[in-house]
Each structure stands twice: as C-alpha cells, then as structure tokens.
Amino acid sequence: MPEQPIVFAYLDEPPFCWPVADGTAQGCDVELVAAAFRMLGITEFEQQLTTFAELLPGLASGQWTVTTPLFVTTERRLLVDFSRPVWALADGLLVRSVDRGRLTGYRAIAAAGARLVVVGGQVQEQAGLAAGIAQERMIRVATQEEAVAAIRKRQADAYASVAMAHRGYLARQPDAELAVVDVPTGESIPAAGAFAFGKQRAVLRARFDAALESLIGSDWHRAMMARHGFLAGEY
C-alpha cells in the first residue's frame, strides 16, 4: 500500500503563510514546517491553500496532514492534536486611519455601536461578543481579503485578528488609509498557537514535536522570525 502523502494546509495570511506566483507558499510557518520536516528526512510535501472554515474539518477527515499554526482551544483539541506552541500573539484591529483614535479595542467598538468583521470561527469573534459587541454588529467572512475589503468599502468599521496578521498584510499591501490598533491588555492577552495534526497522525506529530524542540529558539529560528517581523517575546 503506497505511503500517504504529507499535505500542509495553509491560509493566505502573511507573515505566517501566503501563496506566490509559482504556486508554492511562503511565510514563517512554511519555513518552520519545512525545516522540521527536513530534520525528519521529509524533503518533499504538498502545500494546500484553503480557507479557515475548511482548515480543521479537512484535517479531521484526512484531506491534509498538518495545518498552519492556530490558537489552541479546548474545543479544537476534541477534533485534532496540536504540536508544542510556536508563537504567542495578542489581538489587533485593522481600522480606517481616521478611526484609530476612536476604535481602540473591543469595548470601544461595543460602546460606539460599530461593526466588527471577523473570519468566521476564529477566536476573535468570541472575544468581541464577550466585550459586548452585539450579534447584529458582527460580520463574518471566510478570508482575510474579504475582511479587509469590508473595511475599505465601509461595510464594517474594524477587522479583528492577531495584530501580527494585520501588520503582515499592510507590509505586503501598504495603504495609508488603513491602520493597526493593538487591542488593550485585559481585552486580549497573548495566546499560544501551534501546528495542528489529525489524530490519526500521532506518531508523526510526536516526531515533529521533537524537531521543533531543536529548532525553536535556535539562531536560525530567531533570525527567521525577526525577518518576518516578530519580536523575541512573541515566539
């Protein structure tokens, strides 16, 4: 029986991952997963661009082997297994520049009756609801591009994700009319993210974790993460 191919599923969300013209992916998560696989003697693996809504169901059903890191939650652990954490990041808001002094966090959005756009299923949706943003002021989309478009078209007032994702987006597509706001401490604390594996790949995940232990914190890793804009306390 032929060996099952290794498939890495990722999102278009710089600086973590993004597709390039030749059909491959780039980003800090891509570099880290490739380095870990090389340590295991795996020099080739497939890369599959997908949406957040398809990410974990595809993993659980065996469509792919491992996904780009995402926040570790109790609910997600019921579906998949996680590697050791590879980063810890706080939330941020992407807003129109004229609103950066007004929409300073989830509570400010709730108080203003403003509209928050999120990628459906991501943890920022629950953070916004917990801060008092009304369900009818919450807009759910499938991708980062759709969320940014909602801000530009004034269909929403703020887009919630990790601040690093917003900065990565603006680094690739600078726009003076957009600004990043760090969600205040107390409304968002840095949370751990990790690669996710299907529960049927426990042996590979354990070997992958051992490789990560050797890589994370190494000179190569620190230089790579700095090149993608991360600070020392974020990984």
Score class of each variant (00 low, 15 high):
Met225Tyr: 09
Gln155Leu: 11
Arg96Cys: 07
Arg84Tyr: 05
Ile139Arg: 07
Val123Leu: 10
Ala130Trp: 07
Ile6Asp: 11
Glu3Trp: 05
Cys17Gly: 06
Ile133Trp: 10
Trp64Cys: 11
Gly193Thr: 03
Ala206Tyr: 03
Gln4Lys: 14
Gly58Leu: 12
Val117Lys: 03
Gln173Pro: 01
Glu146Gln: 15
Gln135Val: 07
Glu177Leu: 14
Asp81Val: 02
Glu46Asn: 12
Pro69His: 03
Ala35Thr: 00
Gly121Phe: 08
Asp209Val: 01
Gly41Arg: 11
Glu75Trp: 09
Asp91Thr: 02
Pro174Ala: 11
Pro184Gln: 06
Ala160Asn: 05
Ala147Tyr: 03
Leu55Glu: 01
Leu32Thr: 02
Phe195Val: 02
Arg115Glu: 03
Glu187Leu: 06
Gln126Trp: 09
Gln26Cys: 12
Ser218Arg: 00
Ile133Asn: 05
Val80Asn: 01
Gln63Asp: 11
Gly23Thr: 12
Thr50Cys: 08
Thr74Asp: 12
Glu213Tyr: 04
Leu70Ile: 12
Met224Asp: 04
Ala142Cys: 04
Gly132Ala: 10
Lys199Leu: 09
Thr67Ala: 07
Gly58Glu: 03
Leu59Gly: 03
Glu136Asp: 15
Val20Trp: 05
Asp182Ala: 14
Gly120Trp: 07
Pro19Thr: 12
Leu32Ala: 01
Gly193Gln: 08
Leu56Glu: 09
Val72Ile: 15
Arg102Gln: 14
Glu46Ile: 01
Val203Cys: 02
Arg172Trp: 08
Ile109His: 07
Gly120Asp: 12
Gly27Ala: 03
Ser214Gly: 13
Leu56Cys: 04
Arg84Cys: 05
Ala34Asp: 13
Asp209Cys: 13
Ser61Gly: 07
Ala232Arg: 13
Val119Cys: 13
Asp91Tyr: 03
Arg137Glu: 14
Arg137Gln: 15
Phe230Tyr: 14
Pro69Asp: 03
Val66His: 02
Gln48Ser: 06
Leu78Thr: 07
Thr67Asp: 02
Trp64Gln: 12
Gly41Trp: 10
Ala160His: 05
Thr104Val: 14
Ala202Thr: 14
Phe197Tyr: 08
Phe197Gly: 00
Gln26His: 13
Leu79Pro: 01
Glu234Trp: 03
Val95His: 08
Arg167Ala: 03
Ala60Leu: 06
Leu212Lys: 00
Val33Glu: 00
Gly186Cys: 06
Gly128Gln: 08
Ala206Val: 08
Pro14Arg: 02
Met1Asp: 09
Ala34Asn: 11
Phe16Ala: 15
Tyr159Leu: 13
Ile109Asn: 07
Tyr235Ala: 15
Gln144Gly: 06
Arg102Ile: 15
Trp64Met: 10
Ser161Gln: 10
Gly168Leu: 02
Pro184Cys: 08
Asp29Cys: 15
His166Leu: 07
Cys28Thr: 13
Tyr159Asn: 03
Arg137Asp: 15
Val141Leu: 07
Lys153Trp: 10
Ala21Phe: 04
Gln144Arg: 13
Ala21Asp: 14
Ile6Tyr: 14
Glu187Phe: 07
Leu49Gln: 15
Phe71Arg: 13
Arg207Ile: 01
Arg76Gln: 15
Ser61Ala: 10
Pro57Arg: 06
Arg76Gly: 14
Ala194Arg: 03
Ala130Asn: 12
Thr65Asn: 05
Val117Tyr: 09
Leu116Asn: 01
Ala149Tyr: 04
Gln47Gly: 12
Ile216Glu: 01
Val33Cys: 08
Ile6Pro: 05
Glu31Phe: 04
Ala134Phe: 09
Gln4His: 08
Gln47Ile: 12
Ser188Arg: 01
Leu94Lys: 05
Ala134His: 11
Ser83Val: 05
Leu59Glu: 08
Ala127Trp: 02
